[in-house]
Amino acid sequence: MRPPVLLLTTLLGILLALSGAPAGAEYGDVVLNKRAEKEGVRPVVFPHWFHRIRFRCKVCHNELEFKMRAGANDVLMADILDGKFCGMCHNGRIAWGPENCDLCHSGKPGLPTGILGGHGTSGPGRW
């Protein structure tokens, strides 16, 4: 049954190409775009590598209660301004404050929410 396998492979290739997964993303980069572009700003790019140099996973994923699944967290600017989620540190004291919109909202327009791959990987099994 060679033709169906070929067909499936081709379809998978096309799907991957259409998914627009950025090849150069750093491992663990997360795009947040559930609301950003609808609200007229660029998608957020969250780099795990930068944050884990400064904070252990448990700080955000336990103390700040970020669920460990891209897209599973409803992060609203109102919450951040209230000091929740990113706002625990991004408050002008530990890290830059939320008035610096462009520093987080820095993604290419059109990127879907998800966690990206990186060196030698095509990203996680489920996005």
Binding site: P22, A23, G24, A25, E26, D29, V31, R42, V45, P47, W49, F50, D102, L103, C104, H105, S106, G107, K108, P109, L111, L116
Partner: peptide
């Protein structure tokens, strides 16, 4: 500025640390 994720037109690519 060339990772396919950040918008090269964003002011952030000049300010954020490169990996």
């Amino acid at each position: 500025n060339n990772d396919g994720v950040h918008d090269p037109a964003s002011p952030a690519v000049k300010l954020l640390q490169d990996p």
